[in-house]
Computed example of a mutant assay.
Amino acid sequence: MRIPLLILIESVKDYLPRFEQSGFAPVWAPTAEARARTIAERGQDIRIVLTRGATGLRGDEMQAMPRLEIVCSLGVGYENIDLDAARRRGIVVTHGPGTNAVSVADHAMALLLGAARRLPQADAAVRRGGWSGFMGPQVAGKRLGLIGLGHIGREIARRGALGFGMRVGYCTRRPRPESGYAHYADVRALARDSDFLVVAAPGGAATHHLVDETVLDALGPQGYLVNVARGSVVDTQALIAALEQGRIAGAGLDVVEGEPDVPEALKRLDNVVLTPHSAGRSPEAVENTVSLFLQNAAAHFAGRPVLTPVPDAGHRG
């Protein structure tokens, strides 16, 4: 008998046949309405949930699924999965560290270049019949600041240092001297020493609005902010004000606080590049994340330890 699998994310729709072949009975519920209806009507049967950090899974939803054994986050994040509720129930929680790091790092550099060289604006102008040049700073040789130096941060740093000859600094709670990059204990100090500040830190309470008005002012009127992490890490209203007032030069955002709802004030600005939380959505990255999910699920239902448990979440073994 196939294992009932509740899927709360849209990006794996093409993999439903593969999930069936792997012994699961997938139930696809990517919208809020489908999610609520499915949990209410079929929650008694669900044994595994596939979600992602931003989509999450609430404690009351877990309570409505008495047979639930394992929750898998497709990417590295798990900030909106109720880990305390999972721990009380003994529910395994896994995530996918490193599976989409290459794709996200590529996208981060695309946003950085697009914002600095004003590529979307230039493209739009040409399509309107214009042919006047757009001025933007060089990227090569500039200072790259990274908030976070995990899998994604290290990939971005490598592209900046080796591809563009950038001087790389990073801010983390603990220094990583093996990286060879300059460590900053304070994010404002990092911003002051950066031309391009890239957010690559996890979401959650510990990083909520870490990039605030003071950090943006430290980045300064020639600086650019790129966020490929979580929208909650950046104070959106402070960012809008800084962009409107020219207190920073521009921004490239793949994530926005409160997404998918994007503030109209942000959409009206011509010094920001916006993409719809798609940094990790390359075919290669989705394949990697799905493969890891299936490995974790297979291990769990075979009674073995999962490969990538979320820190401090319950897991077998």
Rank of each mutant, 00 (worst) to 15 (best):
residue 111 L to D: 05
residue 185 A to I: 03
residue 190 L to P: 10
residue 59 G to A: 06
residue 15 Y to W: 14
residue 183 H to W: 15
residue 242 A to P: 07
residue 130 G to Q: 14
residue 66 P to C: 05
residue 128 R to Y: 03
residue 112 L to K: 02
residue 255 V to C: 05
residue 255 V to D: 06
residue 261 D to A: 12
residue 6 L to Y: 04
residue 6 L to P: 07
residue 94 T to E: 07
residue 14 D to R: 13
residue 306 V to G: 11
residue 57 L to S: 00
residue 280 G to E: 11
residue 29 A to P: 01
residue 32 A to C: 00
residue 26 P to W: 07
residue 60 D to Y: 08
residue 183 H to C: 01
residue 189 A to M: 10
residue 133 G to C: 09
residue 272 V to F: 05
residue 177 P to Q: 11
residue 69 E to A: 13
residue 171 C to H: 15
residue 105 A to P: 02
residue 292 L to N: 13
residue 59 G to P: 06
residue 180 G to P: 09
residue 176 R to T: 11
residue 121 Q to W: 07
residue 48 I to H: 08
residue 93 V to T: 08
residue 140 A to S: 14
residue 107 H to S: 04
residue 280 G to I: 11
residue 25 A to I: 00
residue 291 S to K: 14
residue 252 G to R: 03
residue 97 P to T: 07
residue 13 K to C: 03
residue 257 E to V: 00
residue 83 L to K: 00
residue 33 E to K: 12
residue 47 R to W: 01
residue 178 E to K: 09
residue 84 D to C: 00
residue 203 G to V: 01
residue 160 G to W: 00
residue 182 A to R: 15
residue 217 D to T: 10
residue 150 G to W: 09
residue 73 S to A: 14
residue 63 Q to C: 00
residue 110 A to H: 05
residue 179 S to P: 02
residue 112 L to W: 03
residue 182 A to G: 03
residue 27 V to R: 15
residue 43 G to R: 01
residue 174 R to H: 15
residue 142 K to Y: 02
residue 45 D to L: 05
residue 148 G to L: 10
residue 172 T to H: 13
residue 250 G to S: 02
residue 267 K to I: 00
residue 275 T to H: 01
residue 171 C to M: 08
residue 282 S to R: 10
residue 84 D to S: 12
residue 116 A to F: 04
residue 254 D to Q: 01
residue 91 I to L: 10
residue 12 V to Y: 03
residue 216 L to A: 08
residue 186 D to C: 09
residue 248 I to V: 13
residue 92 V to R: 00
residue 128 R to M: 11
residue 179 S to C: 02
residue 41 E to L: 07
residue 176 R to C: 04
residue 232 S to H: 04
residue 223 G to T: 04
residue 54 A to S: 15
residue 24 F to I: 03
residue 277 H to T: 04
residue 233 V to L: 00
residue 174 R to P: 02
residue 201 A to F: 11
residue 53 G to K: 10
residue 105 A to N: 04
residue 205 A to P: 11
residue 141 G to S: 03
residue 114 G to C: 11
residue 187 V to C: 06
residue 174 R to Y: 13
residue 61 E to D: 10
residue 279 A to Q: 09
residue 97 P to H: 08
residue 299 A to E: 06
residue 84 D to K: 12
residue 155 E to L: 00
residue 198 V to M: 10
residue 121 Q to H: 10
residue 96 G to A: 14
residue 177 P to S: 12
residue 175 P to L: 00
residue 47 R to E: 15
residue 30 P to Q: 06
residue 100 N to C: 01
residue 65 M to T: 09
residue 19 F to C: 04
residue 191 A to K: 05
residue 13 K to A: 15
residue 283 P to H: 05
residue 140 A to E: 13
residue 116 A to S: 14
residue 274 L to Y: 03
residue 36 A to R: 15
residue 117 R to Y: 13
residue 98 G to S: 10
residue 314 G to S: 15
residue 195 D to N: 13
residue 111 L to C: 04
residue 37 R to I: 01
residue 241 A to T: 14
residue 49 V to T: 05
residue 185 A to R: 13
residue 232 S to V: 09
residue 29 A to E: 02
residue 45 D to C: 02
residue 239 L to H: 12
